[in-house]
């Protein structure tokens, strides 16, 4: 392709003729994502207060090795180095974390908010050098679909956790059906995570976007329509599910610490 001569001088960082509050959105994203990142790491490092009764924090689900009754394969494995702190969250949190890091919505958002590339539309940037997503490391964003596959498994695990959160044990160890506020919070979390995961751009591509003659595959067409419907509000699903994951952990943590009381509805 041909190139063209440059007549305009490149703008300085933050230089723009925009009159609106263009900095509000990237600042809000910066604060929101930073708050979540700090909280998620803090909660993952704790390694305790992550389950209460039938509830298990989504930061720790599935609990592959751990001390709570939700653990799949018993306590911390013997091969884990004694000098290295252990939390069941270490084993799993990387997968949903990388699913969000490579998500098309979040990419656009954090490139602006954290890397100022650009800070906002039609606003001057701090750097002249630009590689985009066509070379290392950002070329790795193309692995998003693989993290999507893992995220779908996580949604299934969290849905199973909701089922388990409906069975409360009494002092004698007998399980009985019930619904607490925590059950509703975990159920809402799964719905929001499902809306985010199944409306993912890669899911939309896999269900039917890759086909040019979608009408010849009615099942793909239906799945594509559903995924596209969720995809139209992908940003909303992304933020709501991020908030719900964090709030679910806070709720279970505070119940576990005895600060909050979980009210039984049924």
């Amino acid at each position: 392709m041909s190139t063209i001569d440059v007549y305009w001088s490149q703008r300085r960082f933050g230089q723009t003729a925009r009159r609106d509050w263009w900095w509000v959105q990237p600042l809000a994203i910066f604060l929101g994502l930073s708050a979540f990142f700090i909280y998620a790491n803090w909660a993952a490092f704790q390694g305790k207060f992550y389950s209460w009764g039938p509830y298990l924090s989504p930061f720790y689900s599935p609990e592959i090795f751990g001390d709570s009754p939700h653990s799949w394969f018993g306590p911390k494995p013997a091969w884990w180095p004694a000098w290295w702190p252990y939390s069941p969250a270490y084993l799993i949190l990387w997968a949903p974390g990388l699913f969000r890091v490579t998500c098309y919505y979040y990419r656009g958002a954090y490139y602006k908010a954290f890397w100022a590339d650009p800070p906002a539309c039609a606003v001057g940037e701090p750097r002249k050098h630009y590689l985009g997503e066509r070379s290392f490391p950002l070329i790795m964003q193309n692995a998003h679909r693989y993290f999507l596959y893992l995220a779908v498994l996580f949604v299934a695990c969290l849905a199973y956790d909701v089922w388990k959160a409906m069975w409360f044990r009494d002092a004698a160890g007998h399980a009985s059906f019930g619904i607490g506020i925590g059950t509703l919070i975990l159920a809402a979390n799964v719905v929001l995570l499902g809306g985010y995961t199944f409306g993912c751009h890669s899911m939309r591509h896999l269900t039917g976007g890759r086909l040019d003659r979608l009408s010849e595959s009615p099942i793909c067409q239906k799945a594509y329509d559903c995924s596209s419907c969720l995809n139209r509000r992908h940003m909303l699903w992304a933020w709501m599910s991020l908030t719900s994951v964090m709030f679910s952990d806070i709720y279970i943590r505070l119940c576990s610490m005895g600060i909050w009381t979980d009210w039984r509805i049924l």
Partner: peptide, 30 residues
């Protein structure tokens, strides 16, 4: 691959074409 999905193109489109989500990202996926 240079596109880093800022969605600015979609925001300024006077025809409201969903440029990023319906054109660029599906092509990136292909």
């Amino acid at each position: 691959g240079y596109c880093n999905i800022t969605t600015c193109c979609r925001k300024v489109c006077p025809e409201n074409i969903t440029i990023t989500e319906n054109a660029i990202i599906p092509l990136k996926e292909r």
